[in-house]
Design a protein around this nucleic acid. Structure first.
Length: 889
RNA sequence: GGGCGGUUAGCUCAGUUGGUAGAGCGCCUGCUUUACACGCAGGAUGCCGGGAGUUCGAGUCUCUCACCGCCCACCA
């Protein structure tokens, strides 16, 4: 056996095992397998991305689940890939070009897209390389990119189909326009930002009534240049008289009808609202009801266009705001100005205020597609974990708005629509098909122009669960793949993209595959810093997972994230915790080192059921029980419970007790016991490594080579041990628990009574409980070693006076310490213990004397309380007796 | 305005069907106990945010109040 170094070195393990895993084919799904498949669709990170803590959490969770199911023998598919991330990627490349003073428009569309592809080839692999550093084990040969040919086919096919079904349509309506990026964005890409602004109260002169005004309030004075009406509430007595009349728009001179509409709030502002239907979503609706004119006053940069008086043309919206206010003031038409805090919609990518703008865009009829999704979740065909997210999902889906899917960008899936000179639209697979359709339509060939826009990135992501599996290819192999791996078992993701992505995958999956895309949606939380602050560059509190891996090792990071991944709660990442789990890795390493130093190894003919030593029978049962508890924790996506379980088993059972107890047996001159213990220890380590592997793949793989049987390959491909109830020995467990308690008590006495550490003492045991007769002698060496005693014997008769006594259930153990210790300290210890128990007895007595309790509580609970009281009372008696004997000294 | 989550040991947090309050880190006291000081042994610390209710019994269920956080909508 090779000696191990004193400490585990993560770098070495992390640089050797990944390639071996990958080369072994362990990551790959096997469609020919007899085993049941287990599928996770990896949420494709942005191709521009680099690994942050949120990624580390989500991919660790997924990798734990995948490795665990792989070790259950399932045929696992973890489908990896990246997202082309339309706006994000286009911005990255534009920024790089800007450094060379090249502009996108100068390059032209084709050349620019070519540049983006070049960038992708050069730099797009960062995130997947970093995923490898995290130890993630997806099926890399199946890696997909949302702009791959196959996935692009899927996008076109879906677009064409939905269009044919009337579920995709072109419409002219107000959109969220990003004046910096020059594109429409969806409602979800809009962030509300609190802004300290002002509320200007303007006087609009009433037509034909000298000196009379209607006062309107606005936060955006510049939009008045596009006003086409004023609205008041029909029940607003202040204005009944002017409804139907007109006022005159200052600076412009336009006549504005005053209309009555339910929209204005009687309480707010002046009660009268200026209407700018072309630049405000609410005004747009009011305008439609009252046939108000739509006056578009902005160009695509949100600068004023020719529909405003000459002096304002070309100004940007903020300059215009100032100019309008000044001019209104000059006219004496500003009634008052108030400070006003309100939210202003901003583009989440550009960070500038979005402008509602009237344009032609493509929309998905989300309302229709959402219906089956709502039903599917109601019926539990897809279940959210934790369940409370279903409410969020329902709320959004039930009130869903049309989804604007066209983007005025160059990087993305070009919309498969062509326009004839007369505006007729032909949606088709490609230009040739469109031309053909046009020719049929017009009876002659016409020139077509393709829609210049691309699709929202989330459109292609919505197809991910089936487009990555080969849909819509008719090829037999891909059909079989799709059949086998759709729907997936679980989707693991953060709550922030439930709407962006989860909902849309549900829509597309149900519509095109006729079945939900996944059975479970496991929603994990955000990773925050140790004080609960969101990590952000501006706060400077970012913890980079790669730095953590360098400092503590990948396994420590993974184990930490798993241990903190409580369903439904945010993850607060405390570096002290990571160090703690790094220590855990070291502990495991040294336990293994001890095993090796003592010749522990898996013996080919070893049968755990044939163990004769109680200690060995005990640990075998414990290992298997741990396996079973691991199942129930992971089955409920409780990775934190699973991690805690393994941590405590390894440290507080295996290391603290089993290894310590094994020492005398390993030193023993009974060759049978020695051999059995070596073999059991090897078996236990072998299985512990399996249980830990999903969480700590590197260190376990590193150690595996030393604890596996020759025929075993890599740990990643090993199976978890089978649970066998026959190997769980309850008697052995009771016996070992008793011995552990005894040692604990002796240690406590020694410590509290200030017995010098080097002093060896004798133990006399009366009524040794489960450890009867010769069994006590069998454990004597364990007890001696761990409690630092010189001998352990059964007391022939009554316990002698002048001894310190320990009470464990029915047993009393005497330590002849009277001359070594501080008697008063010992007396205090016993009295304290008696007090504690007396308090408990009092509480139990009160409960047990309550007739209501006796009548209504279930009998087993009553009995339990009685037993507890009786035990405590008996223990008090023995403690009192011990106290008496101490006094007699 | 609508909804969700949180408030448990000094800190960060577990506590799944109501039935003796837990972990990690930190703290205190000991320890060259030949796997491990990234260690070992022992110890202290909680009216489980306030109030009310249901129940034989509430950290756990209901209502309410307070504070913190998040999501959605709106903000003329």
């Amino acid at each position: 056996m090779t000696e191990l170094d004193k400490n585990y070195s993560p770098e070495r393990a992390e640089t050797t095992h990944y390639e071996r895993w990958e080369a072994s084919g362990a990551f790959s799904a096997d469609p020919g397998s007899e085993q049941e498949p287990y599928t996770i669709m990896m949420p494709p990170p942005n191709v521009t991305g680099s690994l942050h803590m949120g990624h580390a959490l989500t991919f660790t969770i997924q990798d734990v689940l995948i490795r665990y199911h792989r070790m259950l023998g399932r045929d696992t598919l973890w489908q990896p890939g990246t997202d082309h991330a339309g706006i994000a990627t286009q911005m990255v490349v534009e920024r790089q070009l800007a450094e060379q003073e090249i502009k996108r428009v100068d390059l032209g569309r084709e050349a620019f897209v070519e540049k983006v592809w070049e960038w992708k080839e050069r730099s797009g692999g960062t995130i997947t390389r970093q995923l490898r550093r995290l130890g993630a084990s997806p099926d890399w040969p199946r890696e997909r990119f949302t702009m791959d040919e196959g996935l692009s086919n899927a996008v076109r096919k879906v677009f064409i189909e939905l269009h044919r079904q009337g579920l995709i349509y072109r419409d002219k309506r107000l959109v969220n326009w990003d004046p910096k990026l020059h594109t429409a964005i969806s409602d979800l890409e809009v962030q509300q930002v609190e802004v300290k602004g002002r509320l200007w109260h303007f006087r609009y002169p009433l037509e034909g009534r000298e000196g009379e005004y209607i006062v309107v309030a606005t936060t955006r004075p510049e939009t008045m240049l596009g006003d086409s009406g004023v609205a008041v509430h029909p029940e607003d007595a202040r204005y009944t008289e002017v409804v139907g009349a007109c006022c005159v728009l200052p600076l412009v001179g336009r006549r504005l009808p005053i209309v009555a509409d339910e929209y204005p709030d009687l309480e707010a502002g002046s009660g009268a609202v200026k209407m700018t239907p072309a630049h405000d979503f609410n005004d747009y609706e009011v305008g439609r009801r009252h046939d108000l004119e739509l006056i578009n006053i902005f160009d695509r940069d949100a600068c004023l266009n020719d529909n405003v008086p000459e002096k304002y043309r070309g100004m940007d919206r903020y300059t215009a705001r100032q100019a309008v206010v000044e001019d209104m003031e000059a006219l004496g038409l500003v009634e008052k100005v108030e400070d006003h805090v309100h939210s202003v919609p901003h583009g989440d990518r550009s960070g500038v205020a979005i402008e509602p703008w009237l344009t032609d865009q493509w929309y998905v009829d989300a309302k229709t597609l959402a219906k089956p999704c709502i039903e599917a979740v109601e019926q539990g065909r897809t279940a959210f974990v934790p369940k409370q997210w279903e409410n969020t999902f329902f709320a959004w889906m039930r009130d869903i708005q049309p989804w604007c899917i066209s983007r005025q960008l160059w990087w993305g899936h070009r919309i498969p629509a062509w326009y004839a000179p007369d505006g007729t639209i032909f949606v088709a697979e490609d230009e040739a098909a469109a031309l053909q359709a046009a020719e049929r339509h017009f009876g002659e060939a016409v020139v077509l122009e393709q829609d210049p826009d691309v699709l929202d990135t989330w459109f292609s992501s919505a197809l991910w669960p089936f487009s990555t599996l080969g849909w819509p290819s008719e090829a037999a192999e891909e059909q079989r793949f799709l059949q086998r791996y759709y729907p997936g078992d679980v989707l693991v993701t953060g709550f922030d993209i439930i709407f962006f992505w989860v909902a849309r995958m549900m829509m597309m999956g149900l519509h095109f595959m006729g079945e939900v895309p996944f059975r479970h949606v496991y929603i994990h939380a955000l990773v925050r810093d140790q004080h609960g602050q969101k990590m952000s560059k501006s706060k400077g509190n970012i913890i980079d997972p790669l730095d953590i891996i360098d400092e503590y090792g990948c396994d420590a990071l993974r184990f930490t994230l798993a241990a903190l991944a409580v369903p439904g709660r945010d993850v607060k990442l405390d570096p002290a915790r990571i160090a703690g789990y790094r220590n855990f890795a070291t502990k495991l390493w040294n336990a293994a080192r001890f095993c090796l130093m003592n010749g522990a190894a898996v013996a080919p003919d070893y049968d755990p059921g044939a163990n004769r030593q109680v200690l060995n029978r005990w640990i075998v049962g414990k290992v298997l029980e741990t396996r079973r508890e691991l199942d129930s924790a992971l089955g409920a996506y409780r990775l934190n419970d699973a991690a805690a379980l393994l941590y405590h088993f390894v440290w507080n059972q295996f290391c603290d007790w089993y290894i310590e107890f094994a020492k005398p047996l390993l030193d023993s001159d009974d060759p049978g016991a020695q051999a059995e213990t070596r073999a059991t220890m090897g078996w236990a380590m072998n299985n512990l490594l399996r249980l830990l592997h999903p969480f700590m793949p590197y260190i376990t793989e590193e150690l595996w080579a030393r604890f596996k049987q020759d025929s075993d390959g890599l740990l990643i491909s090993a199976l978890l041990p089978d649970f066998d109830a026959g190997l769980v020995d309850a008697d052995a467990a009771a016996e070992m628990d008793w011995v552990i308690r005894l040692i604990g008590e002796v240690r406590a006495v020694r410590s509290e009574a200030n017995v010098p550490p080097a002093a060896k003492i004798d133990l006399l045991v009366k009524d040794a409980g489960p450890v009867t007769g010769g069994r006590l002698t069998a454990h004597a060496s364990l007890i001696q070693r761990l409690a630092r005693t010189s001998g352990v014997e059964l007391a022939p008769g009554d316990l002698p006076p002048g001894t310190v006594q320990i009470v464990i259930d029915e047993a009393t153990v005497a330590l002849p310490l009277a001359d070594v210790i501080d008697i008063s300290a010992e007396r205090a210890r016993l009295e304290k213990e008696i007090d504690k128990l007396a308090g408990e007895v009092a509480k139990l007595e009160k409960k047990l004397s309550n007739p209501q309790f006796l009548a209504k509580a279930p009998p087993e609970v009553v009995n339990e309380q009685k037993t507890r009281r009786d035990d405590a009372t008996a223990t008090i008696d023995r403690l009192e007796a011990a106290l008496g004997r101490l006094r007699a000294a």
